[in-house]
Design a protein around this nucleic acid. Structure first.
Lengths: 144, 144
DNA sequence: CAGCATCCACATTGATACTG
DNA sequence: CAGTATCAATGTGGATGCTG
């Protein structure tokens, strides 16, 4: 019976590891800010509050669905505040919280790192790709 | 004919914006490190070189597919080096490069931020959720 | 204006089976 | 041991149409 047990044990290991991952704060944060739209929204709002339509115009590539959805999660996570002004056409403003502001600060760090190291990455890619193209025979891969 | 033109213009705006985004270094990097597996692999390798099977055991939740795939991209981007030792059962080691090491450093920054601010996020969520639960009538949402 | 609901296309990932 | 190849499930995001 050990055959089955081994598989079962692996599965349990995975589950617990996944559970652990789900709780990891830094991992959560990373997932959070790494969303394309969250990043862009934080950047757009860093200059000051904006209306829904302003954001829509500031980031032309976002669909209302993702715009709304992203703003909701950000609001829920305390990164932005949503202010509704009851008028004839309703007016909704979004503004960074202090927490959101500090996240922008972190993203700036990331940005700086990226800009100072991206050359290395690009060159590494070029090298890797040229090596791959010049590959002797190898195990008969795609390009065969 | 302006009706069509407006839509077309929006589309073009999006395309160019998307093209811009695709080139943005910090955005690329963010996408890179925010991959679940890349993060975990960097962390696992930060202590020193490991073999393929070691990594597999260190991160029980990863499938060979994603393990290999992630390692390949990381290798291509110059974050790790792959060393094959021709023996009877082949031996392959993975090791962080200097570039990979500095990325680990960045991730540490992110981790620190996350750990020091995650409480705020969690509390914001609790508040938001309780407010949502106490919602007066609203526009007849899910929980209706 | 600001948003929600629905349907759908596509990319990402996981499970499985096989190989040098 | 260290992968490759393939298929199926899943989720994420986009387009569209409608509302207060």
């Amino acid at each position: 019976m050990p055959t089955l047990t081994a598989a079962a044990r692996r599965e349990r290991e995975r589950d617990s590891y996944n559970a652990y991952l789900a709780e990891c704060p830094s991992h959560n944060l990373l997932a959070q800010i790494s969303s394309k739209w969250v990043t862009l929204l934080l950047a757009a709002l860093s200059a000051g509050p904006l209306r829904y339509s302003d954001l829509s115009r500031a980031i032309p590539s976002v669909s209302q669905k993702m715009l709304t959805q992203s703003l909701r999660t950000m609001e829920r996570d305390g990164l932005v505040v949503r202010t509704v002004t009851a008028a004839v056409p309703v007016r909704v403003d979004y503004e960074l919280t202090a927490l959101g502001g500090s996240l922008v600060g972190l993203m700036t760090q990331v940005k700086d790192w990226a800009e100072s190291h991206m050359d290395n990455v690009y060159e590494a890619r070029r090298e890797y790709d040229s090596r791959a193209a010049a590959e002797p025979v190898a195990t008969l891969n795609k390009r065969g």
